[in-house]
Design a protein around this nucleic acid. Structure first.
Length: 579
RNA sequence: GCGCCUGUAGCUCAGCUGGAUAGAGCAUCAGUCUUCGAAACUGGUGGUCGAGGGUUCGAAUCCCUCCAGGCGCACCA
């Protein structure tokens, strides 16, 4: 297949034409007031794209908006693309694209591996920090958001040409290990640690934590264990390494299941040696000062609370670690951006860390992509309250429910294939449930919502793909030797035109989702596309259509399937040939 | 007390950063399988976009106040 053929989206191309028209029509207008861009219409009756610049320009130009719109229309010479340019309402400029042009462009898209999506990230590196679970605790449903959203951002950026360094910044260092080490010495069950290490570590942690709440001596002993660990005590390091190893084994099983891969797995411990360096640097630059026995950076200029970088017992905290991490990443990878995907509770923390980083001279773009915390109808998850739902259980349940549906709808399918389909459908449903929602919205976990298999859900999209695969098989059976690609695409029926426009907007959806760090914008697009396809499928014949029309429609099916597959792949969702 | 976020159909959520008559999915009602896969399609019911002001040609979207909820606010990460 030919490589990428277009550098720009339709939106961008039309906007460029509008800019030119604007300059010709009103050469004296300052560029600041220039906002002649094309935007997709919400209603087909208003054309395919619209430009609202005339309304905004009415004031600076002191002329009626309709007149301005007409002047723009008069300067807009693009007979190849545009079928009709009309002034409507108070001064909207409606653009209707030529069906032949749409058809030709679709043909090019079909020959393009990238489906017309540009690669603006080429030559640039992005460091993506996501998932980041805590060692010695099981991953629960709350972790799925960072993992699934982060992974979608990873895939989106890679597709857009960026070199992505995905780093799993494990919580493998810090106070909890004091409690864990102490607890492990006192009440570890060797057999349980052998068979179910994570569950045993969790049990130990909860017990040790509870005791620390009522027993100051216990807390002090835990702190002592932590200091020993940080000073490199052999026995504590061995135990700690064992905790990390067991946790990683469990995490990796889940990541494999979710098809999530990291380029780096560097926990907080990785930066341990650099913490004193950060403090020295802060002191050298005169940014840090003593306060109540601790070392802090004041951030009054940024209107932020002070950032504590060294505790009064001279220990380091997580701001220190994150600062060391930023410096290390900038030095090693020189990325265009470092992106953190965590829950909403860390907003202030990252604003502080970013502010201090800038004072240290870091100019790299730093982004905190936060998402709403997941909770239960009765409140937040808490290890100590024991109301967590383990991620593994969620995934098991998803596959189980999907298998029930497969049994019902595809009883003739071989059992092994049924299980395979149920796996792809179940996991897809879980991922899609998270990805189709605005990341920042509050999420209240319910089984039915997380495992929805109908309506706006992954299976709906997977089903559309499977039906297309079936159509393509039937076409090959009934018309052996037929080559749809040698037949031009024609957009006769209105639904074909609608589908064509939607297909051609795929690049816009991908770019927007990445730009705003919002996979749900892509999910929305895919659902909308699949709906248009379902309407198309249900209302016009393919294989029974006359020769020529038939091939054109089979081509539309192919492009739709590839777009859906590509889009779902970018969300980390599989598309089996049959479901 | 200060800061960030949320409030849209009975329920779960979108809403392209200020555009035209606010959209989907569940649920509900009525239709569509002897014909390309009904996990689907067609149509109906259902909204003072939390409340009240303001900004302007135009507000769910921007500003202010209030109400309700979530989350933060230096020695846990």
């Amino acid at each position: 297949m030919r490589p990428m053929f277009k550098q720009h989206t339709i939106e961008q191309e039309l906007s460029a034409g509008l800019q030119q028209a604007r300059q010709q029509a009103f050469p004296d207008l300052a560029p600041v007031e220039d906002a002649a861009t094309a935007v997709a219409t919400g209603d087909e009756r208003h054309g395919d794209y619209q430009c609202n610049a005339a309304l905004a320009l009415a004031k600076p130009l002191r002329r009626p908006p309709r007149e301005i719109a007409q002047a723009l229309a008069d300067q807009l010479h693009d007979p190849e693309r545009l079928e009709r340019v009309t002034v409507a309402g108070p001064g909207f400029l409606n653009l209707r694209l030529r069906a032949e042009w749409l058809a030709r462009r679709l043909e090019l898209v079909q020959d393009d591996d990238r489906l017309g999506v540009p690669a603006p990230g080429t030559g640039r590196t992005v460091l993506l920090d996501y998932s980041s679970p805590n060692v010695a605790k099981p991953m629960h449903v709350g972790h799925i958001r960072s993992t699934v959203i982060g992974n979608a951002l990873d895939r989106l950026h890679r597709f857009l040409g960026y070199r992505v360094v995905a780093d799993n910044h494990l919580g493998d260092w810090g106070t909890q290990f004091g409690l864990l080490l102490l607890g492990f010495r006192h009440f570890a069950d060797a057999a349980a640690y052998e068979t179910e290490p994570i569950e045993e570590l969790e049990r130990i942690y909860v017990r040790s934590y509870n005791r620390s709440q009522e027993d100051p001596a216990w807390l002090a002993a835990a702190r002592a264990e932590l200091v020993k660990l940080q000073q490199g005590d052999g026995e504590n390091r061995r135990l700690w390494a064992s905790f990390v190893e067991h946790s990683l084994r469990e995490f990796n099983g889940l990541y494999r299941r979710l098809d999530v891969r990291f380029d780096l797995v560097r926990g907080e411990s990785f930066y341990n040696d650099r913490l004193p360096v950060v403090i020295d640097l802060l002191r050298q630059k005169g940014l840090a000062e003593e306060s109540e026995g601790a070392l802090v950076v004041r951030l009054e200029a940024e209107k932020l609370p002070v950032c504590l970088v060294q505790k009064s017992d001279s220990g380091y905290n997580y701001a220190t670690t994150d600062l060391a991490t930023v410096l290390s990443r900038v030095e090693e990878f020189n990325p265009a951006a470092i992106i953190y995907v965590t829950d909403e509770r860390q907003q202030l923390h990252f604003r502080q860390v970013f502010a201090v980083s800038r004072r240290l001279g870091v100019t790299t773009r730093l982004e905190h992509v936060w998402f709403g915390l997941m909770r239960l109808p009765e409140g937040t998850f808490s290890t100590r309250q024991g109301n967590v739902i383990k991620l593994e259980r969620l995934l098991d349940e998803a596959e189980r429910r999907a298998l029930e549906v497969v049994h019902q709808t595809s009883p003739a399918m071989p059992p092994a294939q049924q299980r395979e389909v149920a796996r792809a459908v179940g996991l897809g449903a879980v991922k899609y449930a998270d990805l189709s929602q605005h990341p920042q919205s509050l999420v209240t976990f319910t089984w039915d919502k997380a495992l929805a298999l109908e309506g706006n859900s992954a299976p709906y999209l997977q089903y559309a793909c499977a039906r297309i695969a079936s159509v393509q098989d039937k076409y090959r059976e009934q018309f052996p030797g037929g080559e749809p690609r040698t037949v031009p695409i024609r957009l006769g029926a209105p639904i074909e035109r609608t589908l064509a426009i939607k297909l051609l907007r795929f690049p816009e959806a991908v770019l927007r989702a990445a730009e705003h760090y919002r996979p749900n914008l892509l999910a929305d697009y895919l659902f909308d596309l699949a709906q248009a396809y379902s309407t198309f499928y249900q209302n016009v014949p393919f294989l029974k259509a006359e020769t020529g029309v038939r091939e054109s429609r089979v081509r539309l099916c192919d492009i739709t399937a590839r777009t859906l597959r590509c889009g779902l792949h970018l969300l980390g969702i599989e598309t089996p040939e049959r479901i």
